[in-house]
Amino acid sequence: MKIRPLTIEGAWEVTPAQHGDSRGTFLEWYRFDALAEAVGHPLDLAQANLSTSARGVVRGIHFADVPPGQAKYVTCVSGAVLDVIVDIRAGSPTFGAWEAVRLDDTDRRAVYLAEGLGHGFCALTEGATVAYLCSATYRPGHEHGIHPLDPELNITWPVGEPLLSGKDAVAPTLAEAGESGLLPSYDTCVSYGKQLQSG
């Protein structure tokens, strides 16, 4: 398993070693110890989600209040998606930046994103199935979104007309979320991360 940091602090790409023969393939898609060594603390697994999406569906950009936030470990178990991580932490050196990683059922990559980062993806195939492990359970009223087509973010979604949920379609822009006080603070996220590292 290879784990490398992405350009946005708090985000990593994970590439598992695959072992295949005529019977099929085996791989470790998540390793508690390997991720903890890279990140600096273990992922406190509280919830596991699974979604299926039609081709062209865009989900996100979603995030949760910090603390506790919601760190995520995401992989695509069937089909393919373009996974997008957005730095929405007010005061971050890379505020407003985004990075995309293709997740599919061939390379079996995963991404990890720390608390306070925004997350979304675009389904590149029919029935794209995404599984993600979360560090905290869903908390109504503490989960938020930013419009995935916000021109300020200028995310290059690989579809002409993304299909959005009703909730995502009316989500605020990054600027509007900042003006209304919804965005997590970079300093708060860093401080919370240090608390997790110290146990």
Rank of each mutant, 00 (worst) to 15 (best):
residue 2 K to D: 15
residue 4 R to M: 12
residue 8 I to P: 02
residue 14 V to H: 02
residue 19 H to S: 13
residue 20 G to M: 06
residue 20 G to A: 14
residue 22 S to H: 12
residue 26 F to E: 10
residue 26 F to C: 05
residue 40 G to I: 05
residue 41 H to P: 00
residue 43 L to S: 04
residue 45 L to T: 11
residue 45 L to H: 12
residue 46 A to V: 03
residue 49 N to M: 12
residue 50 L to W: 13
residue 59 R to D: 06
residue 62 H to D: 15
residue 64 A to L: 07
residue 66 V to Q: 06
residue 67 P to V: 07
residue 68 P to Y: 03
residue 70 Q to E: 15
residue 80 A to Y: 08
residue 80 A to E: 11
residue 90 A to L: 11
residue 90 A to M: 02
residue 93 P to T: 09
residue 98 W to P: 07
residue 99 E to V: 13
residue 100 A to C: 00
residue 105 D to A: 01
residue 106 T to G: 04
residue 107 D to Y: 07
residue 108 R to E: 00
residue 110 A to H: 00
residue 112 Y to I: 06
residue 116 G to A: 05
residue 117 L to W: 10
residue 117 L to N: 01
residue 125 T to N: 01
residue 135 S to R: 08
residue 135 S to N: 08
residue 141 G to N: 12
residue 143 E to L: 12
residue 145 G to A: 13
residue 145 G to I: 04
residue 147 H to L: 08
residue 154 N to T: 04
residue 156 T to I: 10
residue 167 K to Y: 03
residue 173 T to V: 05
residue 174 L to P: 13
residue 177 A to P: 04
residue 179 E to W: 04
residue 179 E to C: 09
residue 187 D to E: 10
residue 189 C to Y: 10
residue 190 V to R: 14
residue 190 V to D: 03
residue 191 S to V: 10
residue 193 G to N: 09
residue 194 K to H: 15
